[in-house]
Amino acid sequence: MSEQFTTHIHDNGVAEVILDRPPVNALNAAGWQALAREIAALGERPEVRVIVIRAEGRGFCAGVDIKELATTPGLIVDVNAGNYATFEAVHLNKVPVIAAVHGFVLGGGIGICGAADIVIAAEDASFGLPEVDRGAMGGAAHLQRMFGVQKTRYLFFTGEMIDAAEALRLGAIERVVPREQLRDTAFAIAAKIAAKSPTMIRIAKEALTGIEDGDLEAKYRWEQGFTLQAYMSPDSAETRHAFVDKRDAKF
């Protein structure tokens, strides 16, 4: 449990993790660390058969707390560790993880979706990695797990967003539904999975993860090294300060 998210385990074995840190669900270093521990622990509980991650508020997740990093740049190491642990906890969880997203899905929100087994999106959802404009790196490995190489590079270099309809067309997400149906749709899918043999589903999860191309965690760790390199640049500091000051960055 954390002040930045809540957890409920329902009678049918579906665990619900709800991000709730107004105004934009940008978690701080401690929040990412706590989220990682919670998701990993849920997968170890025998009564949990499926995990649904969703959010309250204006959007699913805006990533890390840029204001925290602007005032305390040294926390980048802790934030990186929390991000890595969270995405790993989702990707390598012992049970299927469903991300039910709405509004903006940015940065760490992309990491969660790219690590998840199934992504359900509301019609108002939009996906993007504005890392270059925030003086950071990371998340492209997870974005590339959703989209192809060329689309990932276009989105990363430009910082543009892609809407739910286009994400569905490109096969990045399972389905798009009206916002008011998002939770029910995710829970209907979760219930269908939860009704199956938990032993078979856990075996299937491990087997499917094992046949993926490449090592998602290793790819993301590679990216994180460049995040630290980026943070050593004056341009990185300028992007963060410009974001906090709500002005255009000057280079």
Rank of each mutant, 00 (worst) to 15 (best):
A165H: 06
A29D: 03
T239I: 04
E16N: 05
P46Y: 08
G82V: 06
E166C: 03
T86Q: 03
L155R: 02
T209E: 14
E180Y: 06
F104E: 04
F60E: 01
D20R: 08
D163L: 11
I120N: 00
F187W: 13
R169P: 00
A141W: 01
I193L: 12
R37H: 08
M146Y: 07
R179Y: 10
V48W: 00
I112F: 02
A237G: 05
R54K: 15
I18D: 09
A125F: 06
P22E: 13
Q144W: 02
T185I: 10
G13A: 08
N83D: 05
V132Y: 01
F87D: 05
R37G: 02
I193N: 03
L129W: 00
A249L: 07
N28A: 09
T185W: 09
A115M: 08
L143R: 07
A191L: 09
Y84V: 02
L69I: 14
F187Q: 12
A26I: 09
A237D: 04
F243T: 09
G109H: 05
N25A: 12
T209G: 12
I120H: 06
A191G: 10
K94E: 10
R37I: 08
R145V: 08
R134P: 00
F226R: 04
R240M: 12
V101G: 01
G171I: 08
A207W: 11
G82Y: 01
T199G: 13
A188C: 07
G111N: 11
L106D: 05
S126K: 03
L228E: 13
L143G: 05
I51R: 01
I173G: 03
G138D: 05
W222H: 15
V244Y: 14
R134K: 10
A230V: 13
A55N: 05
G139P: 00
K250V: 13
G139D: 01
G82C: 05
D78P: 01
A125C: 06
G148H: 12
M146H: 03
P198L: 10
Y84E: 11
V176K: 07
A242Q: 12
L129K: 02
E131Y: 07
